[in-house]
Amino acid sequence: MFYPNSPQTSPQLTQIPYGQQYAMMQRQIQQPYHPFATTEPQARLYPYHYQGPIQQEQGGFITQQSTAASPQYVQMRVTPVDQSIMSGYPNQTANGSSSSSFNYNIHPQQQQQQQQQQQQLRHHAMPVGSVPLQDDRYRKQLIVNYLAPDVTSTDLHELFSRFGELDGARIIYDKQTNMSKGYGFVYFCHAEDAKEAVERMSGYEFHGKWLKVGYSTNPLNIVPSNSSPYVHAGSRGAAG
């Protein structure tokens, strides 16, 4: 039997160049792979992502010199942007860049009308829970959420009447099932009393439920100042 490094198959040491006398086997001759043993700084910083320098080929596509990437890492192929796409944008300079302001050559009167329309939209648009300043009635009506099913309009009136005089209180019921929808409205005579009720009743436990109280901004629920107070009856038909 002959071994790869046996004296019968191995040459004389004098015939082997210096430095390879003890590297006779194939696994010894093959050098191990060192990912950080390279002179390129990109490979030292990113050993798993770097795959060699990027070269520009004919046709405008950018390719990489090395083989496919590892399945664990996804390499994105980048193509140059066609400058003709950006030619339609206004205020574009000769080098292809555009300024931040756009001039669509709008007539001054049209621009003024658009600004007025935007101001009107901001004036009428009102986020949930906010209180408008032009109508004091919005500051007097509250919406009470997360009410228990057994709470009546009379219970709601008695709960909030300790903060001040009320114009009314009612629970909203479903017309088909005649069941409470879980929320109601309270109408105060003074805005200061309503503000105190919002601050003190939010998070209050009532009939096993934690109440959420806020201003009601729905104009359909506003009680006119010259109208008669609501009837605080315990029956659902009268309260709904």
Results as ranks from 00 to 15, higher is better:
6 S>C: 10
8 Q>Y: 06
8 Q>F: 10
9 T>E: 01
11 P>S: 04
12 Q>L: 07
12 Q>K: 08
13 L>Y: 13
13 L>D: 03
13 L>Q: 13
14 T>M: 13
14 T>V: 06
18 Y>C: 07
22 Y>N: 04
24 M>N: 12
26 Q>L: 11
27 R>P: 09
27 R>E: 10
31 Q>Y: 08
31 Q>M: 15
32 P>L: 11
33 Y>L: 07
33 Y>V: 13
36 F>R: 11
36 F>S: 12
38 T>N: 12
40 E>Y: 01
40 E>I: 05
44 R>Y: 04
45 L>A: 09
45 L>Y: 02
45 L>V: 12
46 Y>P: 04
49 H>Y: 11
49 H>V: 05
52 G>S: 12
53 P>R: 05
54 I>E: 07
56 Q>F: 02
56 Q>V: 14
57 E>H: 13
57 E>S: 05
58 Q>P: 14
58 Q>G: 04
59 G>T: 08
61 F>T: 06
61 F>Y: 05
64 Q>A: 11
67 T>I: 08
69 A>L: 09
74 V>F: 15
74 V>M: 12
75 Q>H: 13
75 Q>S: 11
77 R>V: 15
79 T>K: 05
80 P>I: 13
81 V>C: 15
82 D>H: 06
83 Q>I: 09
84 S>T: 11
91 N>Q: 11
91 N>Y: 08
92 Q>K: 11
93 T>N: 05
94 A>L: 08
95 N>M: 11
96 G>Q: 11
97 S>W: 08
98 S>D: 14
102 F>P: 09
102 F>N: 10
102 F>I: 02
103 N>H: 12
104 Y>A: 04
105 N>A: 14
106 I>R: 04
109 Q>I: 08
109 Q>C: 13
113 Q>P: 05
114 Q>M: 07
119 Q>L: 05
121 L>Y: 15
125 A>L: 07
127 P>I: 15
127 P>W: 15
130 S>K: 08
130 S>A: 05
130 S>D: 10
131 V>W: 01
131 V>I: 13
135 D>N: 00
136 D>H: 01
138 Y>H: 05
139 R>G: 06
141 Q>N: 03
141 Q>D: 00
145 N>A: 10
147 L>S: 12
148 A>W: 00
149 P>Q: 07
149 P>E: 03
152 T>G: 09
152 T>Y: 03
153 S>Y: 12
153 S>A: 08
157 H>S: 06
159 L>S: 04
160 F>D: 10
161 S>T: 13
162 R>Q: 07
162 R>S: 07
163 F>W: 15
164 G>I: 07
165 E>T: 11
165 E>P: 10
167 D>T: 09
168 G>M: 13
168 G>F: 12
169 A>H: 02
170 R>G: 01
171 I>G: 13
173 Y>L: 02
173 Y>Q: 04
174 D>E: 08
174 D>I: 04
175 K>V: 07
177 T>Q: 04
177 T>N: 14
179 M>L: 06
181 K>I: 02
184 G>R: 12
185 F>L: 09
186 V>W: 10
187 Y>T: 06
188 F>W: 15
190 H>K: 09
191 A>F: 04
193 D>F: 10
194 A>V: 02
196 E>C: 03
197 A>M: 05
199 E>Y: 02
199 E>H: 05
201 M>E: 08
206 F>W: 01
207 H>N: 07
208 G>W: 05
208 G>I: 06
210 W>R: 07
211 L>K: 10
211 L>Y: 15
212 K>T: 08
215 Y>W: 15
215 Y>T: 06
216 S>R: 01
216 S>M: 13
217 T>I: 02
217 T>M: 07
219 P>N: 07
221 N>L: 07
222 I>L: 11
223 V>H: 11
223 V>E: 04
224 P>E: 06
225 S>N: 11
225 S>G: 12
225 S>T: 02
227 S>M: 09
228 S>H: 13
229 P>W: 11
229 P>E: 09
231 V>D: 12
233 A>E: 01
233 A>C: 04
234 G>T: 07
237 G>N: 13
238 A>F: 00
238 A>K: 14
239 A>F: 11
240 G>A: 07
